[in-house]
Design a protein around this nucleic acid. Sequence first.
DNA 1: GTATAAACCGATATCTTTATCCGGATATCC
DNA 2: GGATATCCGGATAAAGATATCGGTTTATAC
Lengths: 145, 145
Amino acid sequence: MFSSTTEYALRAAVFLAEVREGYHPAQSVAEATKVSVQYMSKVLKLLVESGVAVSQRGPSGGFALAKPPTQITLLDVVQAVEPVERIMSCPLNLPEHAHELCPLHKAMDDLAVVAQNHLRSKTLAELVQQSIVPLGISAAKRASA
Amino acid sequence: MFSSTTEYALRAAVFLAEVREGYHPAQSVAEATKVSVQYMSKVLKLLVESGVAVSQRGPSGGFALAKPPTQITLLDVVQAVEPVERIMSCPLNLPEHAHELCPLHKAMDDLAVVAQNHLRSKTLAELVQQSIVPLGISAAKRASA
DNA sequence: GTATAAACCGATATCTTTATCCGGATATCC
DNA sequence: GGATATCCGGATAAAGATATCGGTTTATAC
């Protein structure tokens, strides 16, 4: 259903929503989400390019959400890395289906709409576990902090 | 959203629902769906292995649906080639989420359920365009028949 | 202004998906 | 029972997604 890149992007976004204030280096995001720093850096870059996150270079730099978690939906994150695309014209290019999707592609497009609506209805804020520990910060690590 | 393999499988299933009686060689399915015979053969094999279609070797052989189109849903076809998987446990393996999905993966699993239900609600029969020409059989080809 | 922490960027490696090729097995038709 | 149409299966190729590596730039802190 979702590619691993999308899964990583969602984990990262939720993490940034949980930790909140300040910049968090890719290193921290990577550890919390259990993804390699190298790959997580690429994913974070996608989030920055799409306006979901912002980045800051240099010491005490890192990544942060571009807007409050209440204003970022799961769809924003998904579209940043692997857009759920609507089907606008028949991929078969049949003359019969030039101006109206055939029933099959209509059904597939319907699902795209349903999926988009579902993802749009959830904000990052709703996924933050206030009372629980931040995503991926394990008991051992917390103890040492 | 869907891989090309899934798209091909759906096209093939709709085609078989449209042409109805008898076996149809991979060649015919491939032409109608605008996919190479070689690749379509592999996709059709997946449909056979999952019980959506049946195959028959030799002259006047080919492929046909295993059940009437009213009894085959889009979900049957999709699950045959690229299952929409439920998320049963937290991929992060966090102790906190051992027996309950974290909100993120709960949301993702919810979408999987919504998608499955959507696909299950449409049968191949509902996608058949009775009054129109079969999928992919163009005007030129019809004229020559 | 120097040292350092961090994002950035391009090159490469690995794995998966998609696609093609070709010989073999099997059923049908005459 | 032989010729033929078709599915079947394995090997290979090409493309894309995933992942890693190393160097470069930029900002911060002191």
